[in-house]
Design a protein around this nucleic acid. Sequence first.
RNA 1: GUGUCUAUGGUGUAGUGGCAGCACAACAGGUUGUGGUCCUGUUAGCACCGGUUCGAACCCGGUUAGACACCCCA
Length: 461
Amino acid sequence: MTPQINPNTMTDEAKTAEESQRVGPPYQTAKGVHDILPDDHEFFTYIKKVVRHRARQHGFRRITTPTFEFTDVFNRSIGDTTDIVSKEMYTFQDRKGRSLTLKPEGTAGVVRSYLQHNMQTLPQPVELYYIEPHFRYDRPQKGRYRQFWQFGLEVIGESDSAIDAQLIHLFYTVLQDLGVADQFKLQINSIGCSAKNCRPKFVVDLQNFYMGKERNLCEECSYRLPKNPLRLLDCKKEDCTILAKLAPQMRNYLCPECKEFHGELLLLLKGLGIDYVENDKLVRGLDYYTKTVFEFWDKSQGAQNAIGGGGRYDGLIEIMGGLPTPAVGFAAGIERIIENMKACGVKVPTKDDIHVFVAQLGFNAKQKALLLMRELREVGLKTVGALGKGAIKNQLRVADRFKVPYCVIMGITEVRDGTAIIRDMKRGSQKIVKYETVVEEVMKLIGAENLDTYTPGEVLY
RNA sequence: GUGUCUAUGGUGUAGUGGCAGCACAACAGGUUGUGGUCCUGUUAGCACCGGUUCGAACCCGGUUAGACACCCCA
């Protein structure tokens, strides 16, 4: 029992000493990060469960890459002119001066792992999923945090458009399972491939188009122009938008292969019954994408927050030092999904509810209660007792707080008689049963299907 | 990185220059071994620093923190 200081019996000296030290909460979370409290964990647990279930159905296996990697892993893959790399990474040096970075997204680490562990020797494609926290130094706002959870799926080693379609459908299915699919609309685009007459030609023409017009661009865009001209297309500044409308369109530059690929993908999506909006302006802020890019956008907020997105990255494995290997993947923001679930009033099932409370009176009863509670838990009944509380009254008050349907009460009389009281908390009725039959009786009341059991060896989520 | 707004017990709030209130929560009681409802009590607050004023939670300046939006993304 932890010693509790009763404020009423505290001396004046103690009080003032304590007060003089108390200047608000001693510590609080750093900017942009937050505790996941038990109520929110019910959402997290549920989402993870759905993701695992759907991923397994499709043959994906889980991977966890480290929380930090050598900074180059991200610089090389994401691209050093991107917003993420140029201003949003948590980069630090370790004690030997190596540059390390907290992962701002999941794909780079997975690709690094694929290469490091020679996964090209596995049957292709390799299908991996992750559920991990990520980190970006960004100004926090609604649905945007400096540490945020993403689940993501990656398919490495297959170039068929049907893979893209299946992956998008999988994402959509997860959103359906979570009851929020209707909230989102798929935005999709193709940004071409690295073939000479495809994106490279487009990029050159785009730069030529902007040549001499730099003065009309915003500061950021004129800086981006030489290295990352694609981004100019979705700049929201008024002057940039006007120019972007007149600029060459990627769709006119797609090589025959990309054009066919994208056409197939749209057809397959239609076949799967997934609504989409073709969006020329969708470029995405990571350099490694090729061909397919997509995002799921919140319908209610117009062009606001994306709940998830991804695309094909056929060039990335080579950039990271592997053989040319096609791949496609996506990631989704768990906090943002939860926000939507709450807004839609989605209730998640919880397993935290307690079945039975054991109240006791007297040392002998307490001793017996410990044994009984062990037995109750062994058969899968979620059981709590207020072992530290003295009066029966207080114990039942605690029981009420847990909203338990049944209480087992044992006092001196019951221990002497070898009995126990089972109280129905809702009806306020109770009966005396033989101690040996308590577990059986409570099980009957709760129902076998509600027991929380675990057999060693059984696969749990 | 830019902008807007906000800051009163643990939570939600009232208080427009004159004693900081209420509700919820928490804790303790309401006499024998029975919870919820009810009653009583207790704990606990003006984010910080400075200025104006006889007097500041309130007006002014700054700091810090937070929220929201832009940007970007999840």
